[in-house]
């Protein structure tokens, strides 16, 4: 169980050997390479968006509205005459920001709570499990909508909701892994040498838990992008005029009988991003930990 993932870890990262082996293995996975290329393109366009855009994505033009693609406006314009291509490029920033902030905070909290649940006293474990199960039993989108009803629609609400709903899954995985390690003989051996709990957690448990967790998180990126886009599509995410894929799709949906271009321009980036991150995540999992999802 742990040995499978033992190739991924801080100890090996320094050596060129395992990393080279990883690259060789990864290149054989053609779908994974496609995913990696897509992810690199999307992340690059988000970082360098100001240099890629052809127009100011938020400036309202007096000229053509809902225009079809032309040389000037590659993907046409929206109902306010804004350049759709520029908005789609700029729109990559919000989902990626939402994904990185929400997942890294969910990761941090989940890691700590999972370690506590897995290594702490039994009653605390049961209590935390109850909390995790409670949060997980909320239907995610409906829970998100309820939170937004309370907090008001904003990017921060979306991030908070995603972090809250994905945290229990990570915490559970960490807990399961920690508990499996806890009863293992090498932990007893460490204790017998006089090692304290902090040392055991940091030096021995954490590296074993981190690998599977990172893969899990990377596989959740597309889901987060989808949730963020979905909430923005419902008008519950970022506020206009901030460009965002879900918001563009929503504009397109509202004018779907007038022009197909907005829908196409809003949806394609979502499709490419979710596909790219999914393919990459699956490839990473296949290489490092093929059995990971089974014990969820």
């Amino acid at each position: 169980m742990v040995i499978v993932s033992s190739r991924l870890g801080p100890n090996d990262a320094a050596e060129a050997g395992p990393f080279g082996a990883f690259l060789r293995q990864f290149r054989k996975n053609r779908v994974g390479v496609v995913g990696a290329v897509l992810v690199i393109l999307i992340v690059a366009s988000a970082i360098f968006a100001p240099f890629v855009v052809t127009h100011d994505p938020t400036r309202i033009m007096v000229g053509p509205r809902l225009a079809p693609p032309s040389l000037d406006f590659i993907l046409g314009t929206d109902q306010l005459g804004r350049d759709t291509f520029s908005r789609a490029i700029m729109g990559s920033r919000i989902p990626l920001l939402a994904a990185s902030v929400s997942l890294s905070s969910a990761l941090a909290v989940g890691l700590v709570l999972g370690l506590i649940a897995g290594f702490g006293p039994r009653w605390l474990d049961n209590l935390l499990l109850l909390v995790f199960d409670t949060i997980r039993s909320f239907p995610s989108i409906i829970f998100a909508l309820a939170m937004i009803a309370l907090l008001g629609p904003s990017l921060a609400s979306v991030i908070l909701v995603i972090a809250t709903t994905s945290m229990p899954i990570y915490a559970r995985v960490v807990r399961t892994q920690t508990e499996a390690q806890r009863s293992s003989e090498y932990i007893a051996a460490e204790r017998s040498m006089g090692a304290g709990t902090t040392r055991i957690l940091a030096v021995h448990i954490l590296p074993n838990v981190l690998g599977p967790l990172m893969i899990l998180v990377s596989m959740d990126v597309p889901a987060v992008i989808a949730v963020e886009a979905g909430l923005s599509f419902l008008g519950m995410g970022v506020r206009p005029p901030t460009p965002d894929w879900g918001a563009i799709l929503n504009d397109g949906y509202n004018y779907i009988d007038r022009t197909p271009w907005l829908v196409i321009a809003g949806g394609i980036p979502i499709v490419l991003a979710t596909l790219g991150f999914t393919f990459l995540g699956e490839a990473l999992r296949d290489i490092f930990d093929p059995k990971l999802r089974k014990d969820l």
Binding site: A226, L249, Y253, P260, G267, T274
Partner: peptide, 25 residues
């Protein structure tokens, strides 16, 4: 590959696209 893709693509995007193709167009 195709099955992974169908899982990954969010349902609301599919919904909007089938609406565009089969209902609107």
């Amino acid at each position: 590959v195709v099955t992974v893709a169908t899982i990954a693509i969010p349902s609301f995007v599919v919904a909007v696209y089938v609406l565009l193709i089969f209902a609107v167009t």
